[in-house]
């Protein structure tokens, strides 16, 4: 019997040793809710994530090869666009909304400021096809990818053969977006008992819990719902937000609650990028009355925050910056993957 036990223990150790050699592709932080994304429908593999990453950084996805996803979603700013309040696309077009930061997308029930997209797989279609963003047709894009040697290699690695389809292209991009998990900020270390807030950060955390957590709920720092936050509509953009999708006047000027994670680097703020810094955002919430009736039990404006409170709150918000996420080499421009795939395609051509 002890022999059997030993053998079992030996096998377990072998398995553990084998498994620990490879980094897991996706880790849901243990204290977080279950991801909304169904990974069984699109099981992650390293080669599909690599393909998605190359696609994400490739301006070939746009009609004139000028604009990639990363043009407006830079890894160093939590995949937001700090140069522009509104998205900036082909032929110097300017869109109508602020490119949002990208992280923890596996937990999202819907995407875009108005929730127009219901599934992460189908999200990339919107900026690819939008005439003021990448202005490209998916069908045409698949032909361009099919005739590029590097992509023949990457698609074969990912899917077993070189065939490019819309489904494969979108699933690969979704896989790269899924692995963009940010959960290693100072706030997270404090919650795990590894470090402590400063006194000022602690005060700020209490103020956050009191005034902000109704919508920007822990641990994702968003409830993933739509809300009106009292801002007057920009008369030029005249953007009614969620109402465009539901047709319900109750949803007028409602926009997706963005996450506060990495908020330090993902400026400018709001759906139209009207605030350049967090001081301006906090000023709005603590000094402005709502432009229109709020009808929001979670928010009453202005919030009773003194100037000193605002400084404390800001100190807490800065603890949500996750440098491991911002400077993760696995999320940056995939130079090595591109070089290897290009070399391989040249070798095959000979």
């Amino acid at each position: 019997m002890s022999k059997q036990f030993l053998l079992a223990a030996f096998i377990v150790i072998l398995l553990v040793a084998f498994r620990s050699r490879e980094k897991p592709l996706f880790v849901a932080p243990p204290s977080w809710p279950q991801p909304h994304y169904d990974f069984n429908e699109n099981p992650l593999t390293a080669s599909k994530i690599a393909l998605g990453r190359v696609l994400f950084y490739d301006p070939l996805l746009s009609a004139d090869s000028s604009t990639s996803c990363s043009s407006c979603h830079s890894s160093y700013t939590a995949f937001a666009h700090t140069d522009h309040a509104l998205s900036h696309g082909i032929h110097d077009s300017i869109g109508t909304r602020n490119a949002p930061a990208l992280m923890n997308l596996a937990w999202k029930k819907s995407l875009m400021w108005d929730g127009a997209v219901h599934h992460l797989d189908l999200q990339a279609l919107a900026p690819i096809a939008h005439p003021a963003e990448m202005g490209e047709e998916l069908q045409h894009l698949t032909l361009k990818l099919q005739s590029t040697g590097m992509y023949n290699v990457l698609f074969k690695n990912a899917f077993g053969d070189t065939l490019v389809t819309g489904e494969r292209t979108l699933k690969a991009i979704a896989q790269f977006m899924l692995v963009l998990v940010s959960a290693q900020s100072k706030y997270d270390s404090v919650m795990q008992g590894k470090t402590q807030f400063t006194l000022q950060e602690k005060k700020g955390y209490r103020l956050y819990q009191q005034h902000c957590s109704g919508c920007h709920a822990e641990p994702l720092f968003t409830n993933d719902e739509f809300a009106y936050n009292g801002l007057p509509a920009d008369p030029k953009l005249n953007d009614s937000g969620r109402m465009k999708i539901t047709g319900d006047p109750k949803d007028s000027l409602h926009f997706k609650v963005p996450t506060l994670r990495n908020i330090e680097v993902s400026y400018p703020y709001m759906h139209d990028g009207r605030f350049m810094n967090l001081t301006a955002v906090l000023k709005h919430y603590s000094t402005s009355a709502s432009a229109l009736p709020l009808n929001n039990p979670k928010l009453s404006l202005p919030l009773p925050l003194t100037p000193a409170d605002r400084v404390d709150l800001l100190a807490f918000l800065l603890t949500l910056t996750d440098k491991n996420f911002l400077f993760n080499p696995d999320f940056a421009y995939p130079k090595k993957i591109i070089e290897q795939a290009t070399k391989e395609s040249e070798r095959l051509r000979k």
């Binding site: 169904d38 429908e41 127009a116 797989d121 279609l125 819309g166 489904e167």
Partner: peptide, 22 residues
């Protein structure tokens, strides 16, 4: 309609899928 991206004649590259709205 509520599922993720699909292939064959359901592939969005067929042009029968809205891009700005799922």
């Amino acid at each position: 309609n509520s599922a993720g991206v699909q292939g064959g004649c359901l592939d969005p590259m067929q042009g029968m899928y809205w891009t700005w709205l799922s």
